[in-house]
Design a protein around this nucleic acid. Structure first.
Lengths: 140, 140
DNA sequence: TTCTTATTGCAAGTCTATTGCAAATATCAC
DNA sequence: GTGATATTTGCAATAGACTTGCAATAAGAA
């Protein structure tokens, strides 16, 4: 169970499971799109959950630190989005420029490329960001 | 000559070549690293060029519109960087997490992938962002 | 239930980037 | 060169994402 895993992770670092963290997690769990802090804030308020925007940011920060959540910086959006890892494989996204709809990509074409880059640049590669934009079927 | 090309581009859209635009361009031309607006502002001020930060932003916006400059959003930097196109091919970057040094990558492994994504998602792919982070040879 | 300590909300602040507007300046016609 | 006109600039103010300090609150262990 996801909730148990998370509780353990929190405990292990001297942290507590609280109503607000619960609320953020539940929302992320049932939402398919990666959410921004503001979107999480707005959505929870619509559901009459009282939470401060600062707390949303802090919660996301903690969840990211525990490796339970991934932070995305989509192409020129100027904000961060978050999605639960929850056993999902490393993947990328494509976002519609028109409607903002975000879809997961099932492939990551970069596994072989990393070695090539390391040889070429002498860097030790740590992370990569790969995000696409375009027009979704509805907006074409 | 780059300067002529730019002047033409400006003219063609009813714009003018000015001292400030000149200064931003010259700086971009002789700097190898992609620069942020603030960095451009600071550098020009160090060189006793009087320019407002707003003007830097507006200049970059215009140059981007003319297709003379590329806007980069590197992995979780929280700001945009700009570099001259100037006949250079489409490419990506890798940034050192330690010292911030940015190096060009000579390959783009995504040409074939785009078609695959279009088939898979039914999107029409327009752009992609691909940026790496890691440790540069000096920081390892 | 009580105590300790993490967590929260609020207010204020930071940083990147944008907008409105009057003043400055580039370009064109003369 | 001079003047007309339209673009560009600087300044002040503003927007929006995100952070920090601190007192009040709540989780969880005894």
């Amino acid at each position: 169970m996801l909730e148990l895993t998370i509780k353990k992770g929190l405990r292990a670092t001297g942290r507590r499971m609280t109503r607000t963290r619960q609320a953020v997690l539940t929302l992320l769990e049932r939402t398919r799109q990666p959410l921004s802090a503001t979107e999480i804030f707005d959505q929870l308020h619509q559901e009459k959950v009282s939470i401060d925007l600062v707390t949303v940011y802090r919660t996301l920060h903690v969840l990211k630190e525990l490796g339970l959540v991934v932070q995305l910086d989509l192409h020129q959006e100027g904000l961060s989005r978050y999605e639960l890892k929850e056993g999902r494989k490393h993947h990328h996204h494509i976002r519609c420029q028109m409607c903002g709809h975000i879809v997961d990509l099932l492939l990551c074409p970069l596994k072989n490329v990393t070695k090539l880059i390391e040889r070429q640049t002498q860097f030790i590669v740590d992370e990569h960001t790969l995000e696409f934009t375009g027009l979704c079927p509805e907006c074409q």
